[in-house]
Design a protein around this nucleic acid. Structure first.
Lengths: 127, 127
DNA sequence: ATCTATCTACGAATGATTTCGTAAACAAAC
DNA sequence: GTTTGTTTACGAAATCATTCGTAGATAGAT
């Protein structure tokens, strides 16, 4: 596999911002990060440079301020982390994870209905 | 919070074995671990000593071979890790995690029915 | 052209995890 | 009691993530 994604927690914070906001400079990301934690600017810069080295980000160096973009999709990353979680924490049982997620986080009625609908859909033999 | 559990991957492997097998010596754990990876005996020992220092394990030093037991429950640990995952990876949306888990890991019919039953149960106003 | 702001690059310190070698304690067998 | 094998304890190396200081490049304003 060329793609075995395992971002750290800090890297995930940055990816989340990039997924939501789209292409951003270090300054942009740092401004967002500062809302919830405090870190030095060069810390954020270094993190993003490392992520670029790892292939998690790509960047456009055309301007003075480089513009970074996520180089991994949100869905694929979520999927990989989820699979790791199911394997390592739930011993391979996705349904057990699902039930614990439903139980602990009291989704509201609308969400539950949505899930039910989704269940029906994937149960249908024909699309 | 006295309990903010964040075991590393290696620590989780050991916890999984202890949860399944119950109280075990370092030798026991190491024998299990060797089935899937190779690590030195003293590596396993050191890991378990650190886990004991952290409060993840408790131990009985009565005999020559100390007997270790998990000092955190499987459910609580799963719950904490799951919550962290929902917050950090799914931006707080449990239902989105659920749907991706259902979609990617094609649970079989029996599992799906089980989940549906569970859904109905937690939807009921009265227990 | 010079000054000022900002940005990148680099290197190093810190801290945590993982690994393992070595020594000392211990028990069982001889 | 001495040897042999197993166990614990300790310390240190190797790796990785995180943090930040400093230097040099760059663009814009005066």
């Amino acid at each position: 596999m060329s793609s075995n994604i395992k971002p750290t927690d800090s890297e995930l914070e940055i990816l989340n911002i990039l997924w939501e906001k789209g292409p951003s400079t270090v300054r942009d990301i740092h401004a967002e990060l500062e809302k919830s934690k405090d870190a030095g600017y060069t810390t954020t810069l270094k993190l993003m440079q490392i992520m670029h080295d790892k292939g998690l980000l790509k960047r456009d160096t055309g301007n003075k301020s480089h513009v970074y973009t996520a180089n991994v999709s949100q869905e694929k990353t979520q999927g990989q982390l989820l699979k790791r979680m199911i394997d390592n924490v739930y011993n391979g049982s996705a349904s057990q994870l699902v039930m614990q997620a439903l139980g602990n986080h009291k989704a509201d009625k609308k969400e539950l209905d949505e899930i039910r609908k989704y269940l029906d859909e994937i149960s249908k033999p024909k699309s």
